[in-house]
Simulated scan of single mutants.
Amino acid sequence: MSTKGSILALTDDVMVSASTILGVVRVLQIEGCNGTDPLIITQATSLSQLPLESSSIDVVISISRNIEFPSDHLYKEILKVLRPGGSIVVHHTSPSTPQQTGKATSSIERKLLVAGFIEAQSVQLEPALATLSFGIRAKKPTWTVGSSFSIKKTTESLPKVQIDDDLELIDEDSLLTEEDLKKPQLPPLGDCEVGSTRKACKNCTCGRAEAEEKVEKLGLTVDQLNNPQSACGSCGLGDAFRCSTCPYKGLPPFKLGEKVSLPGNFLAADI
């Protein structure tokens, strides 16, 4: 059972000839198996496990008319009895069209890969084996599940950059001018505040003129802005609480008796 070149043939048929098995071995040129008497198991679909020791077979050949043979469970059993590096050959004898053959081949290759086999590929058959419509061959990996090995990682060293000692480096501070080093002067606070006693400058660009124009449209005096009062007590809460004739309508909320301060985006468009 453990000699080199051992062959196991599986089929779901009641019987299969030994010459068919040996013909497959000869056509595929399986090394070390010529002249070897194969072990043949018929009606293999009824088996829950193969009656063989683990890693005791070099080649397993499956011959069937049924595309569903071998089953997923049987593939796992085949993987168990094969030696590391052993081969499995799956042949189907039912005649089929090229389109059907292509679909069946892809399905079997996927099953082999899922079961743990590698290098699954189609094999060419000779006219002498015309009854075998197509075949797929795969291998059991030489490594075992759970094994580990180190990967040699090659590190490429960075090229050395040589700097000439005579090379003059530029001082970053020399790139700044005197104007760049000057601290920016901010405008004095409240100088352009709307509602102050001073009017907006001619050709005003800070927005004060537009703010004063908007306040004038509201009909408010400087006193109403500096010391706002309310008869109903709701004017300072905002437009949602003001009546339709409220003189402060359109202004932001404020505290009664305190100067109304307009936000910086008072003149910004809503859209």
Rank of each mutant, 00 (worst) to 15 (best):
I7R: 02
A9Q: 11
L10H: 00
M15R: 14
S17P: 03
T20L: 15
V25R: 04
R26S: 11
G35L: 06
P38L: 06
P38M: 05
Q43T: 10
P51N: 09
E53D: 14
S55D: 11
S56T: 09
I57L: 12
D58R: 01
S62M: 11
I63R: 02
R65G: 14
R65Q: 13
R65V: 08
F69Y: 11
P70T: 15
S71Y: 01
H73F: 00
H73L: 13
L74N: 04
K76M: 07
E77M: 04
V81F: 00
V81M: 04
V89E: 05
S94I: 10
P98E: 07
P98V: 04
Q99Y: 10
Q99K: 14
Q99W: 09
S106A: 13
L112E: 05
A120H: 04
L132D: 00
S133K: 14
G135L: 03
I136T: 14
I136Q: 05
R137P: 02
K139V: 06
W143R: 09
S148P: 00
F149R: 13
T154Y: 05
T154D: 05
T155I: 12
P159I: 05
P159K: 01
D165E: 12
D165W: 04
D166Q: 15
I170N: 15
E179Q: 15
D180Q: 14
L186N: 12
S196T: 13
T197M: 09
T197C: 03
K202V: 15
N203V: 06
R208H: 01
E213H: 10
V215G: 03
E216I: 05
K217I: 05
V222Q: 09
V222F: 10
D223H: 11
D223Y: 09
L225M: 13
N226S: 10
S230W: 06
G233E: 11
C235V: 04
D239L: 09
R242M: 02
C243Y: 03
P247C: 04
Y248D: 03
K249S: 12
P253H: 06
L256D: 00
V260R: 02
S261K: 14
P263V: 08
L267E: 07
A269H: 13
A269V: 07
I271Y: 08
I271V: 04
I271H: 08
